[in-house]
Design a protein around this nucleic acid. Structure first.
Lengths: 242, 242
DNA sequence: GTCTTGCCTATTGTCTACAATAGGCATCAG
DNA sequence: CTGATGCCTATTGTAGACAATAGGCAAGAC
């Protein structure tokens, strides 16, 4: 029975729980390892995840592995069918549509809630990410630009200090990476002009610093429009399939 | 075996997966039981969840219990600290703020995406929920009205046919119930006038049926404003704490 | 020749047991 | 009397083994 008598020994305080300092459990490690296998393409969409095979691969036993798979299921990376095993999520066009629309909605909400920014360190995070983008563009490192571009958007979302939004946002990002591994989310697209791309983000940050949420949202709508265009075309009529 | 209906082996995908027909695993059952304990107030916020105690209580062993706790952790109902055990989530005002703002954002997005409704059965679900609300109001059953009121909003969210939004929405709902069990979300408030309350929802549905997303959103903003008012007051300056 | 039907194996679901850690408590030095 | 320090117990983390089920395959009947 749970002990009601005991008051919470450690204060569950702290908007940002720093679990990084704790020695990671096998569950965390296993989840990370499998995530890496999936996102690197080592495991393709639809592939079965055999528990026994993975335990041998990772050198752990089944209980922590199973718990790790529960996590990945919640993250949307794998699909667990009650007694038929787990498979790597095979994202449909509909799934991509859901991910992109939800991601956009979260960004918008975060801006609305956080844009007259109160905590300077959050703005600093955005600037830092923008700096990485500029460096990546200067070096014409497109992979790094994509990476830092996400970091910038994540920092933008972080302006609101809304932990739940941040968590979901990063979860969606992982699923999006899954799409890229699948090449559904065409990789060749990238960005036509690196400098224009960075400039657009710089402008975005300037609007944020000016403290005008509406302007940021307007820019963000145009901003995202290019990324969405070809994906949006794939699912012109939302909900038609179910 | 042959007497059983063969599940489609080739297409592992289905827009609506009907897992209800599967025999529930102990993980599902355990998660449900613990959820019920928490939401009924049997387990109060901050209470520790001792694994051994719960296994005896539920008559299962630890592995499925632990997996169930992983689920509840993802749902935000419990807080698991790496080697210190799990406690029932003690939601701060900040958490309530996050839940309400995110919920509102999801509703808005679902309306935007789904409001020129294409599938009649989804509208029917809304009407059905509204019917339950009217019945509850007529019987002055306030508890049932709250319940059916949520069902209505859930049906509204369901208009978009956006599974990810629906999942997160119901997760947030459960966390909100946790607030109510805690009485932070003052229960006495309820609704000043039951008929006005129902009428507001009926109007909402009419706007939906008219197919005007903007009108629905405008009404929803006013509509939700009352529910938010005293909560919003608690966290006037978002992000002040982190 | 095709369909049904039973077994058989691979895989998942669950359980008990062992190892490791964290917090509490008593003891002892200052 | 107060503080630090070591043990000690309660609890969690992990492992390996057993039971149950699903899907595949072969043998038989029509």
């Amino acid at each position: 029975m749970a002990s009601r008598a005991r008051p919470p020994a450690s204060p569950p305080e702290g908007p940002t729980s720093n679990r990084q300092l704790d020695p990671p459990s096998l569950v965390q490690l296993a989840a990370g390892a499998i995530r890496k296998m999936i996102l690197s393409g080592e495991l393709g969409p639809g592939d079965r995840l055999i528990e026994l095979a993975l335990t041998e691969r990772l050198g752990i036993s089944r209980p922590p592995l199973r718990e790790a798979m529960r996590l990945l299921e919640q993250e949307g990376l794998i699909l667990v069918q009650p007694r038929r095993g787990a498979t790597v999520a095979a994202l449909t066009d509909r799934d991509v549509y859901e991910i992109l629309t939800l991601r956009s909605a979260l960004e918008r909400t975060a801006i609305e809630l956080g844009v007259p920014v109160r905590l300077p360190e959050r703005l600093a995070a955005c600037r830092e990410a923008l700096g990485r983008m500029e460096r990546s563009a200067a070096e014409e490192d497109r992979a790094a630009l994509v990476e830092s571009g996400y970091a910038f958007h994540a920092a933008l979302v972080g302006l609101a200090g809304h932990r739940r939004i941040e968590d979901i946002y990063s979860s969606l990002h992982r699923q999006l990476l899954l799409c890229m591994a699948r090449n559904l989310y065409t990789r060749e697209r990238y960005y036509e002009d690196l400098d224009v791309h960075v400039a657009r983000h710089r402008h975005l940050l300037e609007l944020v610093e000016a403290g005008d949420p509406a302007a940021v949202l307007a820019e963000l709508a145009v901003h995202g429009e290019r990324s969405f265009s070809q994906l949006a075309d794939r699912v012109p009529r939302a909900g038609k399939r179910s």
